[in-house]
Design a protein around this nucleic acid. Structure first.
Lengths: 134, 134, 134, 134
DNA sequence: GTGGTCTAGACCACG
DNA sequence: GTGGTCTAGACCACT
């Protein structure tokens, strides 16, 4: 299964689902146009309340990551033009700035911070490649 | 004032305070050994309940960012060896991976992503310098 | 009930709760995976404010003694790897040293002291066995 | 100096003083009949409020560890018959039981606990010997 | 119904 | 005056 949920985690389950779908789509595990399980199917599979899955799907639709076609089901969007682009870029910058502060309090230099980013990017790229060659 | 709070923000106030103190300390606006306002002073100034400030200060103390000296007040730690280092570095890597996913859905390439990180780091470094020369 | 609280005791109630849960867990009265009463249930039962119970539970979670599963409740952890191990072992040694000083002022020899430790350990072991055979 | 105080420590200063005097007496650094500094002298030396030292001395006198002779000064008791013996032995047993619970949550066996006690006792005995041969 | 957050106001230990 | 603890009661996010 391309999606794992941990109800023990402090992150709300619906956010874990959102993140999981986005990650799978970004990695290519889920291809544009590919059908997602229905709300009830996924809820059963993950053993969570279906309202939780529904909430995740709603948010994903709002972000144009997925599309609901009435009567047919839910699909990864073909052309996902993001909403609120500038706003979300700003959020990302803010988040980075906050992690930079955190890094400082963990005794890291800015260089070490950038090295860590590069390391994570390399890992990510490698894991995308792995999916492509499956 | 080196600390601004937005009670309307969805982020809990006590977390905003924590972040604010950490940011000020990382920027050098608050120097090691410097006295922080008392719980009740800061509560008055921010127009929040003193318990909210107390909660923030307790968490900051737990993370060794600040120290309480009995009867005298609260101070920025001189030597703040962080707790749970490995765990928190892992959280950081996870967060970075999530940014990457997010960046992908915003239509960014990895190069653009790394550029953004560098841009944020440069801004941060500049703002630290600005504080130093005040 | 596996937990008794004395609001007149100089020890803060929330610490009594923490100690009570830890003792019950160590004795086997509370088994790993077992559900704890909800914050509000326990508050009602102990006739204390729910915030007091919440504070105790939060600290227990921080120490990995218990786990919160979102929406379902609070449970004794299955695998509780402690945090800050070395630091806490040091605290323990310090406390032992302080007992020794105390024992000296109560006129005890080191042999009598060690006998007392063994006696306490034996009592404890016996009370664990008693729980096991209930 | 036979007494060190750390105002950063979470333990109240007056308790640190009490413990310090008791430890010095138990180790033989302070001999029975030996004169202690006056409240004000000690307060100056430790850079703490003299009320704090006074409170510590009062408690030490109540426990018969020291004796105040009006006009002459304060002295380590010659014959320190402890007060509340049974009660204090019980407190000690309770403290040990609590640390045993703590040890369990740190993953220690009772054997490891007892080993730790023996180790601490040996260290203590060695440090007493060291004082005797100074 | 679960825990998390916040307010307002109180009391206490410590220095 | 400092932080620590507690109560009573409220609102919110999540499941």
């Amino acid at each position: 299964m391309w999606l794992n949920i941990n109800p023990r985690d402090s992150e709300p389950i619906y956010l874990q689902i959102i993140r999981g779908v986005k990650t799978a789509a970004a990695k290519g595990v889920l291809q544009p146009g590919e059908k997602l399980p229905s709300v009830r199917e996924l809820a059963t599979e993950l053993a969570v309340n279906h309202n939780t899955v529904a909430k995740a799907y709603q948010e994903l639709e709002r972000e144009r990551v997925i599309e609901v076609i009435r009567g047919r089901g839910t699909f990864i969007s073909l052309d996902s033009k993001p909403t609120n682009l500038d706003e979300r870029l700003d959020e990302m910058r803010t988040s980075m700035r906050n992690w930079l502060v955190e890094a400082h309090h963990l005794g890291m230099t800015t260089k070490q911070f950038i090295d860590m980013v590069n390391e994570v990017v390399d890992d990510w790229t490698a894991s995308r490649e792995a999916v492509r060659h499956e």
